[in-house]
């Protein structure tokens, strides 16, 4: 029970710090920032357990293992959700725009006027540059080693599932 409570407290603390920090000074590398927050909170709990001997923190190997697994799993789930929130799903934008039409619906042409390349493609290209998954060289987008690894991983996985290119 100690590991469960500690992990949930660590998660809540991280979310709180995320909310506060992003409002004061949102880092350019948001995901690195989130990982740094996780590391800080994990270190805080390590300190609480080993130096301050606070009862809420894990104190046996079993508890630490379970705490680490649960905290990392829930933080990973949070980061995945944040990525989806930040990326602004086209499917969700479509249904929201149709809903906003108040029953009259929208034609494909009307949807395309608002959901164009500037809205759907340009921000994602920018994300790749910020995340160092691609670079811009003489106005050409070139994939980096990190980007290539990620792309190959997804290609391998899609081939394993016998599925076509996504997007």
């Amino acid at each position: 029970m100690k590991a469960l409570i500690a992990a949930l407290c660590a998660l809540l603390l991280t979310l709180f710090l995320h909310g506060i920090t992003w409002r004061i000074a949102k880092p350019k590398g948001e995901y690195r920032g989130l990982l740094a927050l996780c590391a800080i909170v994990f270190s805080v709990f390590l300190f609480l357990s080993t130096v301050a001997h606070i009862s809420i923190s894990p104190d046996s190997f079993d508890d630490w293992f379970s705490f680490a697994l649960l905290f990392m799993a829930t933080m990973a789930a949070y980061i995945v959700t944040y990525s989806a929130v930040q990326a602004d799903s086209p499917s969700m934008r479509i249904v929201l725009k149709i809903d906003a039409s108040e029953g009259t619906g929208l034609s494909r042409h009307e949807l395309e006027k608002e959901l164009n390349d500037e809205v759907l493609i340009a921000p994602r290209l920018h994300d790749l540059l910020v995340g160092k998954l691609a670079t811009l060289e003489a106005e050409r987008y070139v994939i980096t080693t990190r980007g290539a690894i990620l792309a190959k991983m997804h290609i391998f996985y899609r081939d394993l599932l016998k599925m076509e290119k996504g997007g």
């Binding site: 990326a87 799903s89 086209p90 499917s91 759907l120 493609i121 994602r124 290209l125 994300d127 790749l128 998954l133 691609a134 060289e137 106005e139 050409r140 987008y141 070139v142 994939i143 980007g147 290539a148 990620l150 792309a151 190959k152 997804h154 290609i155 996985y157 899609r158 599925m163 290119k165 996504g166 997007g167």
Partner: peptide, 23 residues
């Protein structure tokens, strides 16, 4: 893999190799 635009863009850039792609 199913719907992320970033992954799809990366796959296209991977195909382009060192030459890269213009917008």
């Amino acid at each position: 893999g199913e719907s992320a635009r970033r992954v799809r863009i990366l796959r296209e850039l991977l195909s382009a190799g060192e030459r890269g792609m213009s917008l």
